[in-house]
């Protein structure tokens, strides 16, 4: 999914020198992961696709500012996450996660109780994650839904890996509490 480090740097160098094919290669290598992350965040396939497109638009504009300290996908995930936050913060598009018109899960298979139950469970979990404080929410989503290593998250958050692990531990505690309250 993610390009090797040296290969990635070579592609970036090519993009900067005006190689369009290199830019398309980067898209091919990363768009699935970006889409998956956004889908997990928003729970809507169409919306995730739009946000993925927005993410890359912003990425092209900001490419000259990418300093290469982190991996390209980490940088893309950060843009995707911000794009998602900007989307849900827009008043006209803001929807309550608890509301009936909350995004539907496209994988929901009608009549399959087991799958439905799993999907509901996943939706509840997603809702609980999105209610976490910002730093914990980003850490959890980046680690579990974006597939970023603790070290990478620490790098872009400019904190230590220990701090990231503490965030994760705290987030689990809050998630457990939140899910338990819903169960009652």
């Amino acid at each position: 999914m993610i390009a090797p480090w040296s290969d990635e740097r070579q592609l970036l160098s090519s993009i900067r020198s005006g190689d369009r094919a290199a830019a398309e290669e980067i898209v091919e290598r990363t768009y699935s992961a970006v889409y998956a992350s956004l889908y997990r965040l928003c729970g809507d396939g169409d919306l995730a696709a739009d946000l993925t497109q927005d993410t890359y638009r912003k990425a092209w504009e900001a490419l000259s500012g990418f300093d290469g300290r982190s991996q390209l996908f980490t940088w893309l995930y950060r843009i995707a996450y911000t794009t998602f936050l900007n989307h849900i913060r827009r008043p006209r598009l803001m929807t309550s996660l608890d509301a009936p018109e909350a995004p539907e899960m496209p994988d929901r298979a009608p009549g399959a109780d087991e799958i439905l139950s799993g999907a509901e469970e996943a939706e509840r979990l997603r809702g609980a994650v999105l209610k976490l404080p910002e730093d914990l929410r980003f850490t959890v989503t980046a680690h579990f839904w974006g597939g970023l290593a603790v070290k990478e998250i620490a790098k872009i958050e400019d904190v230590t890996t220990v701090a990231i692990r503490k965030r994760l531990h705290k987030a689990f505690g809050l998630l457990e509490t939140s899910l338990d309250e819903e169960d009652r």
């Binding site: 768009y31 998956a36 696709a49 092209w60 899960m105 496209p106 469970e121 996943a122 994650v129």
Partner: peptide, 29 residues
């Protein structure tokens, strides 16, 4: 919780998304 978070459903991207994104690659690049 970790298992549920990690195993959240991952759908395939819709067809044509890659092309849409590639079309957005600025010509000014």
């Amino acid at each position: 919780l970790q298992r549920k978070l990690s195993l959240a459903p991952v759908p395939k991207p819709p067809a044509g998304l890659a092309d849409r994104i590639k079309r957005d690659i600025p010509k000014t690049l």
